[in-house]
Design a protein around this nucleic acid. Structure first.
Length: 332
DNA sequence: CGGGCCAA
DNA sequence: TTGGCCCGG
């Protein structure tokens, strides 16, 4: 079964790491700001990591997956409690050009599922965990229950017509949100002025959240936004994963600085339709009519969903409801 | 992942 | 207080 937009932890998005310079920030500096969270990105992480020792998801007695909700509940309650407003942006239909990436991710998941089965037979615990994480899939049930949960706690849910990264970029550009929150860099290619990464590890001293400012990145590199997109396309994106052979950040940067964009692609030996890909970053379909308004938590809806339907312990749920109420009263 | 518990 | 470990459904 192939799911639209199939997610993968590895080989996802564009690897701009070697081109960007992050700034460590204090989580307190995000207070009263709204972050546009890449929902699929975050849910995928929960599905990868929140597992039983045998690699299986956590589920209700009748088999509904709960791993994602088990991740979302403390996560959202915690961030809201710190005065950080959230808006979750969900992917819509992926562009045609993403087909190849989606198929290869799906194939890799099937491979991982086989290896997981083998590891289970061999009783290799560490292997089980490793391969199980790679089999994570955002099924329609997982997406729907995530949206329903977020709506119950009062967090805005925005449905992107196509890629969430493009929608997110629009929301940051228009000023409704301060930054995008994601582990990958693609929203910068779609033109988001700011990106926050590693929000999750915010409580640890080791690696706090980092902020990337598009304008600063472009200034530092001495290039335009289109030129950054061009380099990314050369290095490989979801819309053409291989990119151009032999082109990494170093050569890509040199090429766009010494040539205009068409010539840079020509010199690099590009043999695919780079302009179509560039068009996806410059002009993807987005929804202009959205709200990022934080609403009060609907406690009864939260209880019904989490306790009755998803078999969460009453204590856990009541504790988080208290946090959510506090958060809304303080910062909403 | 994030929380809670406990040992050092 | 800090950190390692287990648990959550």
């Amino acid at each position: 079964m192939l799911y639209p937009g199939e997610w993968s932890g590895k080989n996802m998005g564009t690897n701009l790491r070697k081109l960007v310079t992050p700034t460590e920030i204090d989580i307190a500096s995000l207070r009263h700001k709204t972050l546009a969270v890449d929902a699929h990105n975050q849910i995928y992480q929960f599905l990868s990591v929140i597992r039983q020792p045998d690699g299986e998801y956590l589920r209700t007695s009748d088999g509904k997956v709960t791993s994602h909700l088990l991740g979302l509940l403390p996560r959202t309650a915690n961030l809201l409690n710190r005065g950080i407003k959230l808006a979750y942006v969900f992917d819509g239909l992926p562009p045609q050009l993403k087909e190849q990436t989606i198929r290869s991710r799906s194939d890799r998941k099937s491979d991982a599922a086989e290896k997981l089965a083998q590891a289970k037979e061999a009783g290799a615990t560490a292997e089980m965990k490793k391969y199980a994480a790679r089999t994570a899939r955002l099924t329609p049930e997982i997406i729907d229950s995530s949206k329903r949960f977020l709506e119950a706690i009062g967090v805005p849910v925005i449905q992107a017509p196509s890629e969430a990264d493009a929608q997110t970029a629009l929301m940051v550009q228009k000023g409704g949100c301060y930054a995008a929150a994601s582990t990958d860099y693609d929203t910068l290619l779609h033109g988001s002025p700011r990106l926050v990464r590693r929000l999750s590890k915010s409580q640890r001293a080791t690696s706090g959240p980092e902020l990337l400012v598009l304008e600063d990145i472009l200034d530092t590199l001495g290039i335009s936004h289109d030129e950054l997109i061009a380099i990314a396309i050369m290095m490989g994106t979801d819309y053409h994963p291989r990119g151009i052979r032999g082109i990494g950040p170093r050569r890509g940067l040199k090429l766009v600085k010494q040539n205009d964009i068409p010539k840079a692609f020509d010199r690099a030996g590009c043999d695919f339709d780079w302009q179509a890909i560039m068009g996806l970053y410059q002009d993807m379909e987005t929804e202009e009519d959205y709200s990022v308004l934080w609403e009060p938590p609907n406690n009864e809806a939260i209880r019904v969903m989490l306790v009755d339907e998803y078999e969460f312990s009453e204590d856990t749920v009541e504790k988080r409801i208290d946090e959510l109420e506090d958060a809304y009263e303080q910062f909403g």
